[in-house]
């Protein structure tokens, strides 16, 4: 039997195809852009292509992520809170704490020994603690985001950015540049700032598992998080696709959807558009 999961994220859409033994058969990551439904189609077909399978061979596909309601072909959906936790708990027995850092949100999910979710915390309505923070810093330093980690690897002087705020951190960075600080040290300081924000979200106890695109593409984050917590940070396979993997597990396990199907939901703001606009 073949199952699939699609994680419609704010920045990227991820798809994973698994078999009944939860072995990953194919994955795909595409930019979400403005067409979430189209991105979900492309990611799903991409993962199926990587697995050498067709849609007709899939028993069930579930969606997750902030755009989960846009995945019209999904048989069910679960939140990314559930799916990241479910995926991480598949690889690492609880009790554990999952730290997921995405493009526009960050989550801390605590899971007990039986694999049940105990609690979750998401970042406030703010870019602090998310991948967007790193995007802004890379822009200020004049390097592509893909090059930020390599730049930071040359760091020799431990610098601290005092601000969590993306805008204020950016201006603080300019002050440090004017003060002659090296770009590599500033890049590392940005990672350090992000880690400080993450560890303040909740108590990170038990085994700590890190997932999400930021973890997948910025290894410095893992090392800094481990140093901050004075412990091992476990990075499971396919950290960026962990939500999609969890959705595929939900599809396989027949997890119960707690709400209506995707097409029946209205965006909250649409329910209450401003009056007297």
């Amino acid at each position: 039997m073949i199952y699939a999961g699609v994680d419609s994220g704010s920045w990227n859409t991820k798809a994973v195809v698994i078999d009944g033994g939860a072995r990953v058969r194919g994955t795909c990551v595409v930019r979400s852009g403005a067409d979430l439904a189209g991105a979900a189609e492309r990611a799903y077909d991409g993962a199926l292509g990587a697995a050498g399978l067709g849609r007709g061979e899939v028993t069930a596909v579930w969606a997750t992520g902030f755009g989960r309601q846009s995945v019209a072909f999904a048989d069910g959906s679960r939140t990314e809170l559930d799916c990241h936790g479910r995926g991480a708990a598949h690889y690492v027995p609880g009790p554990l704490t999952v730290v997921d850092i995405g493009g526009q949100d960050a989550k801390v999910i605590r899971i007990d020994a039986a694999g049940q979710r105990l609690s979750h915390r998401m970042n406030r309505k703010c870019a602090a603690g998310t991948g967007s923070f790193l995007d802004e810093i890379a822009l200020r330093l004049g390097v592509p985001i893909e090059g930020l980690g390599a730049l930071a690897s040359g760091s020799a002087e431990p610098l601290e950015l005092s601000s969590f705020c993306t805008v204020f951190a950016g201006t603080e960075l300019l002050t440090l540049i004017r003060g002659g600080k090296r770009p590599s040290d500033l890049a590392m300081a940005a990672y350090r700032s992000l880690v400080k924000r993450i560890v303040a979200m909740d108590v990170l106890d038990g085994r700590v598992v890190a997932t999400g695109g930021v973890i997948a593409h910025h290894p410095a984050m893992v090392a800094l998080l481990g140093a901050e917590l004075r412990g091992e940070i476990i990075v499971p396979p396919h950290p960026q696709e962990m939500g999609a993997f969890g959705a595929a597990l939900a599809a396989r396990d027949g997890a119960a959807a707690v709400g209506p199907s995707a097409g029946e939901r209205a965006p909250l703001a649409a329910v209450e558009a401003p009056r007297h606009a």
Partner: peptide
């Protein structure tokens, strides 16, 4: 929405 839905799932 995600917070509420995730909480009810839990």
């Amino acid at each position: 929405r995600t917070n509420v839905e995730g909480f009810i799932e839990q």
